[in-house]
Design a binder for these strands. Structure first.
Lengths: 333, 333
DNA sequence: TTGTAAGCGTTATCAC
DNA sequence: GTGATAACGCTTACAA
């Protein structure tokens, strides 16, 4: 069943059918109804491929992220898909692995399907060497590229992010103001976002007068149990700490686990803070004080910018939101 | 840059270029190299839309689920996308809302983009009345439909699921064997999966000789805090319980929260079990005993079956896996 | 207001 | 082994 069949049954030309389908006007109400009837009766739906070929767009955006089952990334995927759909775009999802080759390969996969734009979610795509970022720049020559929580300067590349530096700076200061004297930082890796969070921690510590902040930061790239072990080790090594600043909620649950196992009261003996305001923060007992990293804003802004870019409008190459501390039970009143 | 440009530069016909692109043989090694060189030099990639139009497929599958940010659904999306990609299919994600209309609408959206198959994730699509399931059957007339953790009989409809009934039955029996005498069940809703889990609980209780099992089941459709309140209420109402069987890990974290707030020791005073073996079970302290619902198997099986169906091979209309209990710290040794 | 016809960029069926 | 050429099903000037 194609547009010719419909035109024949309706006794009009395919051009008229097309006009009815696309509401392009210039069709008398009478013919319109006649055509609509035939379409209805035959439950005809236009062929998306032919349409795409003619228009050179399928109104589909590509979403690239590492592990879509991660609570944070899953939330981002959800918001993005919703916003895209609200703007008549469908979403093609692609989860890359950690290797550079895979990222490049899966990006190519998205591009080869002629998506209209690509969204990179998370801080794991931009690397230190500009050589390694070439693949992103090349993609941007074909379609607009949106980096969510990451930053890269370049033509047709747009970064939308949360001010992680400031948020962790604020959070660390909040802990100081609530009586903490010896905070430690748990970070996952040196990703773009990771580095900024570390920066915020160091800044706050320096401002406060803490000299050894560099030695109070610990990398926890592994599974949860490893995070707990690392804190045990820190304690055994004689590094005293009365608060843990974690760069994500999962690491924070590790700190909570450490506290509960060692019968430390929260927030009296140990204060803990997380990041992302995810389900992990609220499912924890006690509920973890965390940062709302404005993910929903980031996603809706990114989609709005995509629409504008595709309409050849000017949009800022970098948009930054401020995080917002959500105080729960792992920090003092 | 299209196939004509390449053919011209290479001094061959477009047919030959096409043959080289698709490795359809019947091209001399010499011409092949010549064409490949031109392709390489121009960084030419074939137009996906034109290709799709000719072949009438874009090798893309549709994934429909309610809330892709839910830990369980997000995990499913991740596994599905990975398996699809491994089989050269891309994934179009669409998150429907709870209303019937939205589900129908978003399914149409997927179909209108000519996906090759549709995967429904989760137990929220099939309804009691066959009238309400008409839209699924109609979809199955166009493309094969795969229901993950749900069941519906029909042509071109394939159900792949975990035996939730048996798993909860087993889990409840495990609690009895570990000394529980007064279990309660926390369920979310009467979805397909929800009903089966309830059935398993009731069966185990009856077998054990518990008469009032029907009055020991509580619906917790709301947010976490509400779940805790419901347990408080149950306690206040004088319904004694020494174990909580929750139909998902989030509900189980609610029970853990209740226990910790009331200074009940786990597992001595209260045993708690969850479902899905998600990050919530392990992030909780104590770690929650839960059911591995074989989601990864379910997803890879579904994709394997899709490939077979599209090759006109016969596949079972219903595939069932057994859940697997993962004992952690909220149940006794 | 409506119809004709060209184009979109492939794949595939023929001949040769 | 290679080359014309006809689909594939739409959109959209342009003509009427």
């Amino acid at each position: 069943m194609n547009i010719y069949d419909i035109s024949e049954q309706a006794g009009v030309s395919i051009a008229t059918v097309s006009r009815v389908l696309n509401g392009s006007g210039n069709v008398s109400e009478q013919t319109r109804q006649k055509v609509l009837d035939v379409i209805e009766r035959n439950r005809y739906t236009p062929n998306a491929f032919a349409r795409s070929l003619g228009l050179n767009t399928m109104t589909m955006a590509g979403i690239l992220c590492l592990d879509a089952s991660d609570v944070y990334l899953a939330q981002a995927v959800y918001y993005l898909e919703r916003e895209l759909r609200n703007n008549s775009y469908t979403s093609m999802l692609c989860c890359a692995g950690h290797s550079h080759q895979e990222k490049e390969e899966y990006l190519q996969l998205l591009l080869s399907r002629n998506v209209d734009a690509v969204f990179f979610i998370g801080s794991h795509f931009v690397e230190a060497s500009s050589e390694a970022n070439r693949y992103i720049e090349e993609a941007a020559q074909k379609v607009p590229v949106f980096l969510l929580n990451e930053e890269l300067a370049g033509n047709n590349i747009y970064s939308i992010l949360c001010d992680d530096y400031m948020a962790i700076d604020d959070m660390t200061n909040l802990l100081f103001s609530k009586g903490s004297r010896h905070p430690v930082l748990l970070y996952r890796d040196l990703s773009f976002s990771g580095q900024r969070k570390i920066g915020g921690f160091l800044h706050a510590c320096r401002e406060y007068g803490l000299k050894d902040a560099e030695h109070r930061m610990f990398s926890c790239p592994g599974p949860l149990e490893e995070t707990v072990q690392i804190l045990e080790k820190v304690h055994e090594d004689g590094i005293a700490f009365d608060s843990v600043v974690a760069v994500d909620d999962e690491l924070a649950t590790g700190a909570v686990k450490y506290a509960l196992r060692n019968h430390l009261r929260m927030p009296e003996d140990l204060q803990v803070t997380g990041y992302n305001n995810s389900v992990l923060a609220t499912c924890s007992t006690p509920e973890i004080t965390t940062v709302d990293s404005q993910l929903e804003f980031i996603c809706s802004t990114a989609v709005a910018q995509m629409v504008q870019v595709l309409q050849k409008q000017q949009v800022p190459s970098r948009t930054m939101f401020s995080g917002c501390i959500v105080e729960n039970l792992t920090t003092r009143k």
